[in-house]
Computed example of a mutant assay.
Amino acid sequence: MAELLTTPLHRLHLDMGAKMVPFAGYDMPVQYPLGVRKEHLHCREHAGLFDVSHMGQIRLHGADAAKALEALVPVDVLDLPQGKQRYAVFTNEQGGILDDLMIANLGDHLFLVVNAACKAQDIQHLRDNLKGDVSVEVIEDRALLALQGPKAAQVLATFNPKVNDMVFMDIQPVEIDGIHCVVSRSGYTGEDGFEVSVPAEHAESLAKALLAYDEVEWIGLGARDSLRLECGLCLYGHDLDTTTTPVEATLIWAISKVRRADGERAGGFPGEAKILDQIATKAVSRKRIGLVGQSKAPVREGSKLFDADDNEIGVVTSGTFGPTKGMPVAMGYLPPEFIAPGTEVYAEVRGKKLPMTVEKMPFVPQRYYRG
């Protein structure tokens, strides 16, 4: 087996008693002594600190950067205002999703954050397919911290009150604790919060400065997963993959109107024919849906879904017990005739068929700060 990579905060995780597991080629903390459930609830009620330094940070330079990137994603990059970021997906020629990512306009360059598991292939995809005056710079010397929860802004503002003026999806250079950082008001928990790109050599000191607040606790991958699932957020490689289109994944909102069939810059991205046809006709064989369990038993990824007549109709792609929701939550794919909220289906768990109900996502309200 290849040796696991580590983030700049690896030693601190060990010092804090983290339980470490392999994740996307990295040795990552899955939980701390507090435990997954308490970490989850602490983030919902106060503020949680996440090490997401395993994710890929990339800069695109050059006069053609926005135009070139727009040829790879169904998102409006050309008109992305400076100081703003957008969620996007890389698509393939069949309309499937290669990865999901964040794209930000920092004025003199575009800043991208991609998933750890897809980092190498995304970088190669960019290098192979970006046309014109554009260069790809892979950022190797920065860590990435996420501070999430209702107390996140209160804590971060003690270092620089400037962050109080930011709203959801804003991004800008901000000095935090005397360190030059790039801060976005965004995250992966459904809560208000920030992601902070920080020079690797200052990551540990910044993490310790944030953890000095009673409101802040380390949060591991276990609670990160339950937090994002409760808020209906997809995980690439589970809820999204190369065989799934954005329309099937109910991510039409991530396809900018200007890139749709009636937009002035319609199409021009891989898989446009299939994706635009699915938008126009609404003809898909399956859609991503939310499910809640009627028992206490969590329903895990890979569980098959059945109708009342015992016909196999779909599959669970993410599932766990939702500590805030107080019941099992899952997402998966079902044919269109089964996606109406209130529809009852059955998940197969250890040979038993457990009843689940289709429910509109998010299961827990998202609390992004929009001003």
Rank of each mutant, 00 (worst) to 15 (best):
Q57W: 13
G268I: 10
S303R: 03
D214M: 00
V136Q: 09
I252N: 08
F159W: 01
T243S: 09
V299A: 02
E195T: 05
Y236K: 04
E204A: 12
G263S: 11
E359P: 00
E312R: 06
A223T: 10
R350N: 13
R350K: 12
A65M: 04
Q82S: 05
R260Y: 13
P298D: 14
R265Q: 06
V77W: 11
R86V: 13
L9G: 10
N92Q: 05
M166P: 07
P22H: 07
Q172S: 13
L334Q: 02
D241A: 01
A66K: 15
A207N: 10
P365N: 06
A203C: 06
V216R: 07
A266M: 03
H61K: 13
E312K: 10
R370K: 15
M55Q: 14
G25H: 03
P33A: 00
G220P: 14
V167I: 13
M361L: 15
R59I: 07
F159C: 05
P365Q: 08
F111E: 06
A261E: 07
G267P: 12
L130D: 12
D99I: 04
E215I: 00
A157V: 03
A116M: 10
R259K: 13
R260E: 14
P355L: 03
L291R: 11
C43W: 03
A153T: 08
A203Y: 13
I313E: 00
R260G: 12
A266K: 15
E3K: 13
K38E: 15
G25N: 07
L60N: 11
H42D: 06
K19R: 14
K131A: 14
Q94P: 10
L147F: 11
L126R: 08
D108G: 04
P81N: 07
L126F: 04
C234M: 06
A88Q: 00
L233D: 01
G237V: 05
D99G: 03
L9W: 03
E348S: 11
G290I: 08
F168G: 09
L60P: 09
L9T: 12
L276R: 12
P355H: 04
C181N: 04
A347K: 02
I255A: 11
A65S: 13
K162T: 13
M166V: 01
V75G: 02
C234N: 08
K67N: 14
E140I: 08
G190D: 10
I255Q: 04
D133H: 09
P33C: 01
V247G: 00
E264L: 12
G149M: 10
Y369C: 09
G314R: 00
N160H: 09
Y87E: 15
A273F: 10
E140F: 10
E359R: 10
L334K: 02
F159G: 04
P173E: 07
